[in-house]
Design a binder for these strands. Structure first.
Ligand SMILES: [Zn+2]
Ligand SMILES: [Zn+2]
Ligand SMILES: [Zn+2]
Ligand SMILES: [Zn+2]
Lengths: 142, 142
DNA sequence: ATACATCCTACAGCCACTAGAGGTTCAACC
DNA sequence: GGTTGAACCTCTAGTGGCTGTAGGATGTAT
């Protein structure tokens, strides 16, 4: 049986985050000691590891909730899980395109600055006027 | 003189966002009509355009605040602005590396799924066990 | 028995907005 | 001058995914 701190250490999660996941119903309410402290077993360890790994891969907590549900029903067909993963992949690909445009712009800004007064600073000039940009980086979402 | 709605349209900003920027001191308090409605001039239009463009390039509002300050002092040397831009570039580059790792992992998950029961779903298997991953995508920040 | 690390709840704060309620003002049209 | 009705106003609360703090209780080692 693990204390919340031990579980936190094993999964690379903060204690508060574990309590937060419990609060939003992503982790089940664990057993408690007589004094009221949480104690965890292997099932919870597995579940939290799953959550953390999915978070590292960029899945939202909503998506993770669905994935956990599916994982709890081994006989269901898996296309729902695959759909969620493909959706996530698409989002990542879109963000990549967008970030590459940002990198291009930022590199150019930094490269072209000659290091004089702010009045002549290329960085500030570009920020003042998007027509100085070579890429269209104007879509939503950072 | 522009109403807040006209300013919003010109800069691709929501009205509430403009009021929010004013509230946090990023935009100055504008003049008002007798009835209390905000009216904006060209200075505010330029400033808001700057803010929006910098946001599109991924700068935080904190960084933008610093950049605006620098922009207001044309005789200062510009290395501070350049430092901020370089920092932002670094962050973008780090996110790119990370997102590329995610893309690799997600692509593999999706590709290897054979479409059977969730018990055998490759997507869920990988999520359960990071040692199935080829990349180290475990750094912080999505 | 005492020290003290760890645990508990409850709530506030972070970022950058976004949405809504409930009321007022402005501009145009008749 | 009166009447619409869109756009404005303030204020509050919510989003996601945590993180931090206050103030107190518990667990364990010595
Ligand atoms: Zn410069
Ligand atoms: Zn631009
Ligand atoms: Zn599958
Ligand atoms: Zn992994």
């Amino acid at each position: 049986m693990l204390t919340i701190g031990a579980l936190a250490r094993k999964t690379g999660t903060k204690v508060q985050t574990i309590r937060y996941y419990e609060q939003i119903g992503l982790l089940p309410e664990p057993g408690r000691t007589e004094g009221g402290q949480r104690r965890y077993g292997d099932a919870e360890l597995d579940r939290l590891s799953f959550i953390r790994h999915a978070r590292q891969l960029g899945f939202s907590l909503g998506a993770i909730r669905e994935l956990l549900d599916l994982s709890d029903h081994p006989n269901k067909p898996c296309h729902e899980a695959d759909t969620i993963a493909r959706r996530q992949l698409k989002e990542v690909e879109q963000r990549l395109v967008r970030l590459e445009a940002l990198r291009t712009e930022l590199e150019r800004m930094v490269r072209e600055c000659s290091g004089g007064r702010t009045a002549d600073c290329r960085v500030l000039e570009v920020l003042r006027d998007h027509s100085e940009c070579l890429t269209d980086h104007t879509e939503a979402g950072a």
